[in-house]
Amino acid sequence: MSTVGVTTWWLEQRSLADLVPAHIPDSVSAIRITRAEVPSPEFSRFLYTAVGGDVTWTDRLGWDHARWRAFLERPGVETWVAYDRGTPAGFIELDGSGDGADGNGDGDAGAGAVDGAVEISYFGLLPAFRGRRVGAHLLSYGTARAWDLATRWDGRTATGRVWVHTCSKDGPHALANYRRRGFRLHATTTAEEPSTAPPGPWPGAY
């Protein structure tokens, strides 16, 4: 199997003061962002495949219904969805559960329970909604929700750090978008990974 070099960038904010809110143009002001409070494996999988189908999100494609539900029901996990006139446009998923990056045990496993770290585990837009500054609005709003996450969970440690990683397989503007919102680069890694075609939002879509 052929491989490809993948660069991963790790970014963080250490204070709410680091967040640079996005300017919201009139064309985006009608976008509604709402938390999906009822854990729904079906809905979350739809968002994951609809947003990540063309940027090679594959880590969760093998998750069964029980694994999706177990992840979504962990205290400190939140999904915030942007809607354009009632249609889902994108989502940002926050993981403040302390169990590490999407429960796989990588990243900063356990940090959320110890020092209030919150990971932006997934963030993105459906293709039709990109290039309209919806992403800047959603990332700004979602990062603010990471900083006040403790107010929605009893016994939760106040957020002390918000972190995220993106890689060269993601959309071409992902890294710049995070930096514009005040995230600072703190580590870069490079690894060879199997060369995989984008899976598309459903089998046969491409």
Rank of each mutant, 00 (worst) to 15 (best):
Trp68Gly: 00
Glu93Arg: 09
Ile92Leu: 06
Ser97Glu: 05
Gly103Val: 00
Ser121Arg: 07
Gly100Ile: 02
Ala113His: 09
Ala117Asp: 11
Tyr48Cys: 02
Gly142Arg: 05
Leu125Lys: 01
Val77Phe: 05
Trp153Lys: 08
Arg132Trp: 07
Phe123Val: 13
Gly62Ile: 04
Asp102Lys: 11
Val114Ile: 15
Val81Gly: 09
Gly155Val: 09
Phe71Asn: 05
Leu47Ser: 01
Thr143Tyr: 05
Gly52Val: 05
Arg132Gly: 10
Gly131His: 01
Ala36Arg: 15
Glu42Ile: 14
Asn104Ile: 13
Val114Phe: 12
Glu42Trp: 12
Asp148Arg: 07
Ala144Ile: 08
Tyr48Glu: 05
Asp59Pro: 10
Asp54His: 14
Thr56Ala: 14
Gly90Ile: 07
Val81Lys: 06
Phe43His: 13
Ile31Val: 13
Ala101Lys: 11
Ala117Asn: 13
Gly107Asp: 00
Phe46Gly: 06
Arg156Tyr: 12
Thr58Asp: 12
Asp154Ile: 11
Leu72Gly: 03
Gly131Tyr: 02
Pro127Lys: 08
Pro41His: 00
Arg74His: 08
Ile92Lys: 00
Gly52Ala: 06
Arg67Tyr: 08
Gly142Val: 05
Ala70Phe: 06
Ala146Asp: 07
Val81Ile: 15
Gly124Cys: 01
Thr87Tyr: 10
Gly98Arg: 00
Phe46Tyr: 15
Val114Leu: 15
Ile92Asn: 03
Val114Gly: 09
Ala50Asn: 10
Thr143Trp: 03
Thr56Met: 10
Asp106Ile: 14
Glu119Asn: 08
Val28Gln: 00
Arg85Ala: 15
Val114Ala: 13
Phe43Arg: 13
Thr79Tyr: 10
Gly142Asn: 03
Gly107Phe: 05
Ser97Pro: 03
Ala144Cys: 10
Tyr122His: 12
Ser140Leu: 05
Glu119Thr: 04
Ser40Lys: 04
Asn104Met: 14
Ala150Ile: 08
Val38Gln: 14
Thr58Leu: 12
Gly160Phe: 04
Ala109Gly: 11
Asp26Ser: 15
Arg161Gly: 05
Pro75Ile: 01
Gly100Thr: 01
Leu126Trp: 09
Trp68Ile: 04
His137Val: 10
Ala128Ile: 10
Thr143Ser: 14
Arg130Phe: 07
Ser40Val: 04
Gly53Ala: 03
Ala150Val: 11
Ala136Leu: 10
Glu37Trp: 12
Ser140Asp: 06
Glu119Met: 07
Val28Tyr: 02
Pro75Gly: 03
His65Gly: 11
Asn104Tyr: 13
Leu149Arg: 03
Arg69Leu: 15
Asp99Gln: 12
Ile120Lys: 06
Glu78Gly: 11
Ser97Ala: 02
Gly62Thr: 02
Gly124Ser: 04
His23Lys: 11
Asp64Gln: 00
Gly52His: 06
Thr49Glu: 14
Tyr83Glu: 02
Gly124Gln: 02
Phe129Arg: 06
Arg132Asn: 11
Asp59Trp: 15
Glu78Ile: 09
Glu42Cys: 12
Arg156Phe: 10
Thr157Pro: 14
Gly62Ser: 05
Ala50Thr: 11
Gly53Phe: 00
Asp84Arg: 13
Val38Cys: 11
